[in-house]
């Protein structure tokens, strides 16, 4: 498939002026290629249901799912469900990320603070996340706060771990360069530590966000009256597989979009890194 697209790409390049075609079409073909697999899955899904290989009350055909979603969105309820789930992830993510970033940085920078905080944090990491639920419900009630707290817990660990390790692994030689050039503490943080750990931080943020999405489902499955997770439970209770599958697909799409937003906003800060991607891009720009 990739080869075919690459060929199309090459053929198109002959027709269009090079400056126009090269980059744009290359990018497009790369984006398009990611949609191919979902389309194949949908086609197989369609064939399975149309031939009744799988019973329709277990796996409804795609158009039924679309109908269900359209039906829900006609009066705006779908939108408000999405919004409430998004806002839970958002607050949980921001809260967890802020705390994780602060703790990750200070434990990374200071060995004393690391030996103070890290054992406890590592021990807490070993607690299965769902084990927090009863406590959070007791502390924060059954509404928003406990859900956000649970999501924050999920978001926290990957960010914290990546940051702390990232800072510790910064080359001592670079610190020496800062030293010999008389950088003060803040200049060292600004020019050496922070930019040096951005890749690890972004990796942490992205896995944190992924866990945030995982935990929001957990939180909503356990008791909510709104949200995508609630829709799934609702679908289960009322025997509407189309609703469950619809919510599932929405989770996938929105999760992917939020990850993409995170990645794209981090990209300008990662330009210095050599990765296969940047090499290919540069090749194409040349």
């Amino acid at each position: 498939m990739y080869l075919i697209l690459k060929n199309i790409n090459l053929k198109l390049q002959d027709k269009f002026p090079k400056y126009l075609s090269c980059n744009l079409i290359y990018q497009l073909s790369h984006n398009i290629i990611g949609i191919v697999l979902p389309i194949i899955i949908i086609i197989i899904w369609y064939l399975l249901t149309i031939t009744e290989t799988v019973r329709n009350n277990l796996l409804p055909p795609p158009q039924e799912v679309i109908d269900e979603l359209l039906n829900l969105s006609s009066d705006g309820t779908l939108f408000s469900h999405i919004l409430i789930t998004l806002s839970r992830v958002f607050y949980g993510f921001v809260f967890g990320a802020v705390v994780a970033t602060i703790l990750g940085v200070i434990t990374g920078v200071s060995p004393t603070l690391r030996s103070f905080f890290d054992p406890t944090i590592q021990a807490l990491k070993a607690v299965p996340s769902l084990a927090w639920v009863p406590l959070f419900i007791l502390w924060f009630g059954i509404f928003e706060d406990s859900k956000i707290a649970l999501i924050s817990v999920g978001v926290f660990f990957p960010i914290y771990l990546n940051l702390m390790m990232g800072i510790r692994q910064i080359d001592k030689k670079m610190i020496e360069v800062a030293h010999i050039n008389n950088l003060n503490y803040f200049q060292t943080v600004r020019w050496v530590l922070l930019p040096g750990i951005i890749p690890e931080w972004v990796t942490g943020l992205r896995s944190g966000l992924a866990l945030g999405w995982m935990f929001v489902i957990a939180a909503e499955l356990m008791g909510a009256s709104e949200g995508l997770g609630y829709l799934m439970i609702d679908g289960q209770m009322t025997g509407r597989p189309a609703l469950i599958i619809g919510a599932l697909i929405l989770f996938a799409i929105i999760g992917k979009i939020t990850d993409e937003i995170l990645y794209i906003s981090a990209k300008p800060f990662l330009k210095w890194k050599v990765s296969l991607n940047t090499m290919q891009e540069e090749e194409n720009n040349a």
Partner: peptide, 8 residues
């Protein structure tokens, strides 16, 4: 070794 900061 040159010791340039790769991120600058």
């Amino acid at each position: 070794d040159p010791r340039l900061m790769p991120w600058l």
